[in-house]
Nucleic acid binder design. Structure first.
Lengths: 232, 232
DNA sequence: CTGTATCCGTGTTGATACTG
DNA sequence: CAGTATCAACACGGATACAG
């Protein structure tokens, strides 16, 4: 073989920041293209290769493989081969990996003040569920308690409002007070654009079953942060 | 079938994630190589081109130029040409840009659990001051009030402990209770490694003037997060 | 279905040298 | 001091082919 191995090592060194600062290390760990979005897709539980591709518009298989290897080598995710007869492989966050959720949410909340944000782009079910956690206006919750199911791209998700906070998970929507179903992007005008839920239902953008009142109250708990005004 | 203009546009598009998720937008805004570290260097106030190069080991001038342009175009920083006779150019965070401080600190705090962290690498004065904010153990502060000056690479910094919290800034060390001076890396064993301040002074690694008692108490307020144990 | 391993065109990075 | 110009590596994304 050639000296590719040597140049490969040098290339890796060049990718690092040589900085003792934790933030620099953080960017080495999850700052590569796609890495943090892979973490995002795993925040609601283990996923398979194909699930990740579906949630990440435009990533190619080889790059996804590389990133998964890198994240696993760093101890942020683990690659689990489930035994037969399940015979599935999944990628899951480690405990430490899950601890970066506040960073993922905080970055998103900050970035959404940018005028550059375009809500018409692809929006994965996981991203939608996390956005609820990201953009809940705590002051609006009051003493509401609700368990709202979301049916997105064939999967069940759950959002639970209790004690002024919210929990989201990928879980069957049984014993939810109400269940919403529709395209992920159809939820944005309702949760963040002030569109009344009943109007979205009337237009056929989504469907509600169960306690419509509670679903309607739920739909008003969220808000996008105020946009930044850029000086010309 | 390919026109050069078209490929140029496609190339730009390729850099983005085409994702409505805020986290993806955040990675577009500050996820490029070096970008978040430039923001870090600006968190304590405006800096000049040369200051940034000095704080960022290994960045090249052309890349720094590109990143500054990108961050300015995004509205995260502004490039200010000061009028004569000052005749200096500085880069400063916008109000919105400053708002990502919690993300910078949170990412650093999370990443420092990695076994990959190497405290022997380059450490900029700004990174040291921010690390105090990042790694303060609130429970240890009690009712301590202290104003500690740090003299780092010819510049004065200030850390103020009050009301159980900490404030850091780039400011003259006048009316500080005590002033510490030394290489940035010399502070790590003291703040995060449990090395007694007096011992570091005895070894000549740094100097203390003023209220040594208070400086010593100050030096015990911080801790690195617990390291992650990686499965073999 | 779940990846892995190629090749290839292009863009980005970083080192060096250079200019105002 | 504050950038710009140039250029050789290399990483990326897309396509494709292929293996378990």
């Amino acid at each position: 073989m050639k000296l590719e191995k040597v140049t490969g090592i040098e290339a890796r060194d060049r990718k690092w920041y040589d900085d003792a600062c934790g933030t620099a290390l953080g960017m080495e760990l999850v700052g590569e293209r796609w890495s943090l979005l892979i973490v995002r897709e795993l925040l609601l539980g283990p996923r398979r290769f194909g699930d990740l591709r579906a949630g990440l518009p435009g990533i190619s298989a080889n790059v996804l493989t590389q990133r998964l290897e890198g994240l696993a080598a760093a101890g942020i995710i683990v690659h689990e081969h489930l035994p037969p007869p399940a015979r599935a492989q999944v990628y899951a966050l480690t405990v430490w990996g899950r601890e970066c959720e506040p960073v993922v949410l905080g970055l998103g909340r900050w970035a959404l003040r940018s005028p550059r944000h375009d809500p018409m782009l692809h929006f994965s079910p996981t991203a939608l569920m996390l956005s609820l956690k990201m953009l809940l206006v705590h002051a609006r919750v009051g003493n509401l308690a609700a368990s709202i199911g979301l049916h997105l791209r064939g999967e069940d998700y759950l959002a639970k409002i209790a004690n002024g906070g919210i929990q989201v998970s990928r879980a069957p929507v049984v014993d939810a007070d109400a269940v919403l179903a529709g395209e992920t992007n159809a939820f944005l005008p309702i949760f963040y654009g002030g569109l009344p839920l009943e109007q979205a239902v009337a237009s056929g953008a989504l469907t509600v079953t169960g306690d419509v009142d509670r679903a309607t109250r739920f739909s008003t708990l969220f808000a996008l942060p105020e946009k930044v005004v850029l000086a010309a």
